[in-house]
Design a protein around this nucleic acid. Sequence first.
DNA 1: CGATATGTTGAGACCCGTCAATTAGGGTGG
DNA 2: CCACCCTAATTGACGGGTCTCAACATATCG
Lengths: 240, 240
Amino acid sequence: MPMPAEWQEYSYWNSDQSEPLENGLSEHLRLGKLALMAGMTATTARIFAARSTIRKEGDLETMVSEVVSGSASCRCTLPDGRTMLASILLPGDMIGVSSLIDGSRSGSVEARTQMSVRSLSHAEVLRLAAEKPDVALWLLWHQTRENNRSNEWMAVLSHGNAREKIAFLLLDLYRRLQREAHVGDVPVRVPLTQREIGERLGLTLPHVCRTVALFRERGIVEVFYGGIDILSPHALMART
Amino acid sequence: MPMPAEWQEYSYWNSDQSEPLENGLSEHLRLGKLALMAGMTATTARIFAARSTIRKEGDLETMVSEVVSGSASCRCTLPDGRTMLASILLPGDMIGVSSLIDGSRSGSVEARTQMSVRSLSHAEVLRLAAEKPDVALWLLWHQTRENNRSNEWMAVLSHGNAREKIAFLLLDLYRRLQREAHVGDVPVRVPLTQREIGERLGLTLPHVCRTVALFRERGIVEVFYGGIDILSPHALMART
DNA sequence: CGATATGTTGAGACCCGTCAATTAGGGTGG
DNA sequence: CCACCCTAATTGACGGGTCTCAACATATCG
């Protein structure tokens, strides 16, 4: 993958933090995830239509779910009434792990496309975790990984400019989408509206458009109606 | 606490998310924390001098620690070489929980004042967690709470201006400091340099100074050499 | 007292937000 | 198939928030 030497990469940001664990935990984590997934596949999957509401903001969550297919957006309203896009949920992502343990009420979850979701009630998950320590361990690992991702996001959101923020978001989606369906490597189509990108990053739509236009002029991305094609993820990783 | 009615509060941001758990988990959490703390008090506390390094960036953490007294700063270097202030550690805060479970290497930890720290090795914590499910549960709860705090931070960092960011940071420190020593309620002295505030929030020192000056002119805070006194936390919570 | 760190202030530039108008894509009903 | 509408994307002019560079004042420490 030839790259000009003067390009510095965002090695810290968007790093895949899954180092091999030398302490023998990985086998326990594998078993824990397996047990949790087994409990979920035992129940019938729920199907949500596009643009339907999966969870209303402020409602108490009673289930832990895994996204099987489709994508959803998690939003929460800010104190001044604006609404921000908290996260994009893709296949493999979990919903409701935080509320399982601390009863917190997070934002709303809305299906962006038709979705299939496997769930398990909080009570059932807690029973599983008490019965099999590996399940509790996997939940702990999951929350820890979320934490590490949050820390990277905070670094970008606090110290990055619009180019860096948008590049980080696109790379994040790029990696997560590629993990699922790694058929054609490039381009990967990120199904995000420029308005959504702005809502996620705290940027206005016109400025998102202008910044994306810079990437487009350099041949790094291609813009279409309702999404962005990533042509050169390596160029996105490079600064300047 | 009389307040002009037109003031809106940051009810979402900086909210204390510890809702009472109705599912009987709180007793397990209490026991889990107790067991972990018992293991820590059994070991002798470590003392660090002010400005000494507790953990170097990139080093592998081998212990889980709790801050007993003093304060520390956790920094990490950004891809462009700048260094950001990731968090301020106060008495009661934990160090090294994330690395326990995923082997991640986070930033450096440096004592800001003389510090006293109680620790337990990763191996010992894992043994405790395997033996007593309540300990694993408490760790899970701890990481979940960290996650919720991170999400609030991301909302402020992405969608807030300098006034909101600084107010949020000061309120965060105010609440955490008050929890420890709630002798004189006001003023609470936040021992943060304006340079540090900027490093934490991604703002430059001159702009931090100008923004803090606004708060000072309104009688909300008082600035002194090396820190800020918070005179009116309620005014900090109010928007505008 | 000197040295260093911190806080303060000003001028100018740049990044980004605001408001507005325009173009284009995609769905829906006739 | 076409007319229509709604959403998404684009672009320009302007203003404000923040950064940059700089100088200076002040506090603390040795």
